[in-house]
Design a protein around this nucleic acid. Structure first.
Length: 274
DNA sequence: CGTATGCCCTGCGCGC
DNA sequence: TGCGCGCAGGGCATAC
């Protein structure tokens, strides 16, 4: 489940490894993995392009090419593996970019939710939600005051609002649960009931948890891998996520799991009272 | 307009 | 042991 720390790790690695690489040919093995434009325009448009940089916005990977931009969202199970030697076809390979120097960038995606988008000059980003993305939580401009101001405009359960990319970009189910635990807030807590101090705790937890997860190169449960195929390290630091029935690291109470807004939420009933 | 719900997909874990 | 059901979940479409 690539969230901000996982996508950040992949972006930093690929930037270092792919700068000035050339795309010789795109091989689309599963047409629906291409979100925009159609397959022919995608393969024609990316052929011969040079990779200038790789960066991240929210959970999107941005490949800046000469005269085009490749946007990739990994969704649930997507991986981008950069292979330096010929590789037998992976059963879940959906798109393969053949690069110069015999290298290949494999987009592998078991559940096929991930998408690739190619934008050429004059194209408007076809993802309307992209334009509505909230602030980057690890940027200095993401201040407690800005966060509180945005939170005050929202209603509903705290967990659901944290997962909404319009509030803050980059949180998914793992880090939303971990952030709420660190802030001592119940996932079902109505957003409009939060005190100023609680919003500040939440802000601090978002920055702290995400920073530490980036340092650990993300969390691997099953599918997430870095561009080298390596797992992350933050799964050993999780306090509540997927720890149902296990003791809370702080008080020893059994971790609970319940559905909030259609998403599983893990929390300590003692440390995170409603 | 803002919030809530269902859906897409397939591998895997669980229960019988 | 083997099989089948249901869960997992980001973001979009649709409903309210």
């Amino acid at each position: 489940m690539p969230e901000l720390p996982e996508v950040q790790t992949i972006a930093v690695e690929l930037h270092a490894r792919l700068q000035n690489a050339a795309v010789l040919r795109a091989e689309v093995l599963l047409p629906r993995s291409i979100g925009y434009p159609d397959i022919a325009l995608f393969t024609d448009g990316i052929q011969g392009r040079r990779i200038l940089s790789v960066s991240r916005r929210a959970k999107y990977l941005l490949f800046l090419l000469d005269e085009a931009t490749l946007v990739v969202h990994l969704r649930m199970t997507g991986r981008l593996l950069l292979e330096t030697t010929p590789l037998s076809p992976h059963p879940h390979a959906r798109v393969v970019l053949h690069l110069n120097a015999g290298r290949t960038l494999h987009f592998i995606d078991a559940r096929t939710f991930g998408r690739l988008y190619l934008l050429v000059p004059g194209d408007v980003m076809p993802l309307s939600s992209y334009h509505a993305l909230g602030p980057e939580p690890l940027e200095p401009s993401f201040t407690p005051a800005l966060f509180a101001e945005r939170l005050r405009q929202r209603r509903g359960a705290l967990k659901s609002v944290l997962l909404d990319q319009r509030l803050v970009a980059g949180l998914g189910n793992i880090y939303a649960d971990e952030v709420l635990y660190q802030a001592g807030l119940n996932p079902r807590r109505p957003v409009d009931s939060l005190e100023e101090a609680e919003m500040d705790s939440l802000h601090a937890a978002i920055v702290d948890i995400l920073s530490k997860a980036v340092e650990q190169r993300g969390t691997t449960f099953s599918d997430y891998r870095t561009s080298w195929g390596l797992i992350g390290g933050f799964q050993d630091s999780l306090s509540v996520f997927r720890r149902t029935g296990q003791p809370c690291p702080s008080c020893g109470t059994s971790i609970c799991r319940e559905s909030v807004g259609g998403r599983s939420s893990h929390y300590c009933p003692l440390c995170q009272p409603f």
